[in-house]
Amino acid sequence: MRIVIALGGNALLKRGEPQDIETQRRNVRAAVRSVAALLPGNEVVITHGNGPQIGLLALQMSAASGTPLPGLDVLGAQTDGMIGYWLEREFGNLLQQSRAVTLLTQVEVDLEDRAFKAPTKFIGPVYEAAEGQRLASLNGWSMALDGTRWRRVVPSPAPRSVCQVAAIDRLLAGGFLVICAGGGGIPVARDASTGELTGVDAVVDKDLTSELVAEQLHADVFMMLTDASAVYLDWGQPTQREIRSASPSALRELTFAAGSMGPKVAAACRFAESGVRRAYIGSLEAAANMIDGEAGTLVSCEMSGITLRDVEGAA
């Protein structure tokens, strides 16, 4: 079975944690152990977020140098290499062999995408109002409220194609665990007159890129692992209920937060509708239990309507 697993940003750096290297390495180690049970007998692709890392790197470079900052495409490539190295090392340590390989992945976007006029993608740490305003003024950043504090937002255009999908396919066929499309991939756009690719100052949504990777690789299963145990009806309300399974058409009738569960639900629906395929959304810790139907939310065209899970976990 071919499985694409998208690790949420919480797999590397949870909200409120110290932003040091050792904390992130510890979280990567825990993430690797959680997904390891899915490796035997399967072809596995790992994608991951990099929002906290790319924002932190931009902040560090801005403070350390008076020269212009590299674009987000370059910063994305740097953080993807760092995170890929951590994942490779921990998979090697756990499995006692080096079969994991990181592929820096370019993802083509459209420069006419309306996202460039309305930045929405959060990156980096959160700030109190005064500090957020100072950094916005100093660096020319756009800022928006993330909960009760402020955070940098950047354009998040939709992915159009994954440039290295053929290479990923060959690596899987060769028995490698592939780590790719980190942070939604390195955004590039094609010049209409020359056909050349150039870097773009944006961050592509990780879940949408991961879905495109899964779709183009003809994966059987697409899993999005996050800090939520499943998709919920009435999230945050006294009436909230966990969705055990749902058809894409039923989920599309509901509204989910654009900055959190919305892109995941959209990606799950798109993947499920692309063939006889299953998409799962759930917690990192329960990755191995999702395929057995014991955790998370299953999205599939084989489902009818929405099935809820009660407090004790029974349907």
Results as ranks from 00 to 15, higher is better:
68 P>S: 00
192 A>E: 14
221 V>I: 10
174 G>T: 10
240 Q>R: 14
125 P>L: 11
15 R>I: 09
39 L>S: 05
280 Y>T: 02
97 Q>G: 02
254 L>K: 14
146 D>E: 14
276 V>F: 08
78 Q>H: 13
89 R>N: 13
191 D>K: 15
270 R>M: 03
43 E>V: 10
35 V>E: 04
292 D>A: 15
191 D>M: 13
104 L>D: 01
224 M>S: 01
25 R>G: 00
182 G>M: 03
266 A>L: 09
269 C>K: 14
49 G>E: 05
174 G>Y: 04
141 W>S: 07
13 L>Q: 09
78 Q>S: 11
272 A>S: 13
195 G>K: 15
22 E>R: 14
265 V>S: 06
162 V>F: 02
191 D>T: 14
161 S>L: 12
135 L>F: 07
113 D>E: 11
65 S>L: 03
252 R>M: 13
296 G>H: 06
91 F>K: 14
191 D>G: 13
295 A>K: 06
153 V>R: 08
24 Q>N: 07
79 T>D: 03
307 T>W: 02
111 L>I: 14
175 G>V: 12
295 A>L: 05
91 F>Q: 11
57 L>P: 03
249 S>F: 11
167 A>Q: 10
311 V>P: 00
18 P>N: 13
219 A>H: 05
184 G>T: 03
25 R>Y: 02
282 G>Y: 04
